[in-house]
Design a protein around this nucleic acid. Structure first.
Lengths: 228, 228
DNA sequence: ACAAAAGTGTTAACCGTACACCCATGA
DNA sequence: TCATGGGTGTACGGTTAACACTTTTGT
C-alpha cells in the first residue's frame, strides 16, 4: 500500500470480517456446521459463523476466537482459504471477509454453545440456502480441502487420535466423494511409517474388530511423504 | 460475520489494502517489479506496489487499479494469493493486506510510469531487502506460481502471443528454477492440441530458427488437460 | 452355519525420467 | 566448414488402477 492512496485511506469505511467453514465427519459423511440467521437481512437463511476483526487482533486470532465462541474448542487446525471482497457481497454494508476452514471432532465440541447459536450440522451435499456469497465460500473451501487432503495429513483432525483403517478410508471417500479401492488404500497407508498400527482393536464396529492406528507427528516430520 | 460482534464492528479501525506481486520474464529469468520506498517508515527499502481499497470497489478491482497505476496495463491476468493480517505487520498502522500476483509482458508495460514510481525489475533470486512482511508475500506468491504453473496454462501470460518452444522451456526453467529435459518437455507439449505449431519461424534467436507456437484458449477449454 | 466387516497380492497400463545424435543455417 | 541452437525416439523403473477371496467372530 504505497501509491496514490491518501484519498482512499482517509475515507475508507470498510469492515473486515472472518467467516469459518467448519468441517466435521459423521455417519461416513463430510458435514458443515452452519448457523440459522435469526435477523435481517436474509432472515431465516443459514450462514457460516463469522465475526469482525478486533483492532489489535491478528486475522488468524480472530478466526480462532470465532470458532471458539461457537464450539468451545481451542487449538483447532485452521487454514486461511480466500478473501471475498466484492463491493456488494454483504447487503447490510461494505464488509470484506477472509474465510478460514477448520476441522473439528464432532465428539468434542460444546453442544450447549452450538445450540445456543442455533447451529446445525449439514452433510455437504445437502446444504440449505446460504446468505450472501457463503455458498461460494463453502465451495472454495471444499475444493481446497479435496486438493490438500491427498498430500498433507490434515484429515486426521476429523478423527480421534486412535482410528481404524475402515474409518480413515470412509473419511477419504466422504471428503473426495468417490469410492476408493481398499487394497490400494491400505498399501499406501503401509508405506507411511508414521501411521502406526497399534495392538489394540476397535471391536465396536464389527465382530472381527479392526486394528487402531495412530498418526505420529514427529515421525511424519522426518519423512513428509504423505500421499493418499 | 454474525455473532457477538457489535463491540468489534462499531469501533473497528483497520485499513484494508492490496499488494501486487508482479512477475515478468527477461534474460531467461523470472523477475519481480518492486518500488523504492522514498518515505518513512523503512525509507530506502524496497516494497511491493500496493494501495488501499476504495469504499465501493471490489477487492479484485483494487488490485487491477493498482497494477494499472504502475504499469499502464489493463486486463492483466491476476490471482488472489493470500491475506496478511498480523496486527503489527505494518509499523505505520493497522493494515490488513490481500496479495495478488500478476504476470505481465515486459515488452508492453509503460516504462515512463514505472520510472516515475522508482520501480525496478529484480530477478527473484536477487531481491533486495523488502519492507514489513513483503518478503513473506513474495515467497508465498512464488510457491503458488510454481505449484500452479504445472497444471494450468498461466505461464503464457509472460510470453508474447507467438512464442517458441525454446522460449517456453526457458520460462519454465526460470519459474521452477530447475533444468528440464528438452525431449520430455516437447513430448508433453505435443500432447496438448491447443498449443498450435505455426508455419512461421522465429529467426532472431538462432540461425536455424525455431517454430512459433500459439496457445489456443478455445481449444484448451475443450480438453483442459494441461500438464508440464 | 452364516452374516458382516476386516484383511490380504498380483498383474497390466501408464507416466516420468534418463539419455545422444542429426539438422538447418549464417558467417 | 564450422559453430550455434533446434529438433527428434527409445528403454527402464516406479506408480497407479483394477480385480476376488479368506479370516474372524458373534449370533
Amino acid at each position: 500500500m504505497t501509491i496514490d492512496n491518501k484519498r482512499y485511506e482517509e475515507l475508507q469505511q470498510i469492515k473486515l470480517a472472518v467467516d469459518c467453514i467448519i468441517f466435521g465427519f459423521n455417519n461416513n459423511r463430510l458435514e458443515l456446521l452452519l448457523i440459522h440467521r435469526g435477523f435481517a437481512p436474509e432472515i431465516g437463511k443459514w450462514s457460516l459463523i463469522g465475526g469482525f476483526i478486533g483492532n489489535d487482533e491478528d486475522l488468524d486470532e480472530a478466526a480462532n476466537r470465532v470458532l471458539y465462541g461457537l464450539s468451545g474448542l481451542e487449538n483447532i487446525y485452521m487454514e486461511q482459504v480466500k478473501t471475498f471482497g466484492k463491493a456488494n457481497r454483504d447487503t447490510s454494508g461494505r464488509v470484506v471477509s477472509t474465510t478460514y476452514s477448520a476441522m473439528i471432532l464432532k465428539s468434542e465440541y460444546d453442544e450447549a454453545l452450538v445450540s445456543k447459536y442455533n447451529a446445525k450440522w449439514f452433510p455437504i451435499d445437502e446444504l440449505p440456502e446460504l446468505v450472501f456469497d457463503h455458498r461460494d465460500m463453502v465451495d472454495s473451501a471444499i475444493r481446497r480441502l479435496r486438493r490438500r487432503v491427498r498430500n498433507f495429513p490434515i484429515a486426521f483432525n476429523l478423527l480421534p487420535a486412535k482410528f481404524t483403517l475402515p474409518q480413515l478410508q470412509a473419511l477419504y471417500e466422504g471428503i473426495l466423494n468417490e469410492p476408493i479401492d481398499k487394497r490400494n488404500f491400505r498399501r499406501k497407508v503401509a508405506q507411511m511409517n508414521y501411521l502406526v498400527k497399534l495392538t489394540e482393536k476397535d471391536m465396536s464396529e464389527s465382530r472381527k474388530g479392526a486394528y487402531f492406528y495412530e498418526f505420529d507427528e514427529a515421525l511424519y516430520q522426518i519423512e513428509q511423504n504423505f500421499n493418499l
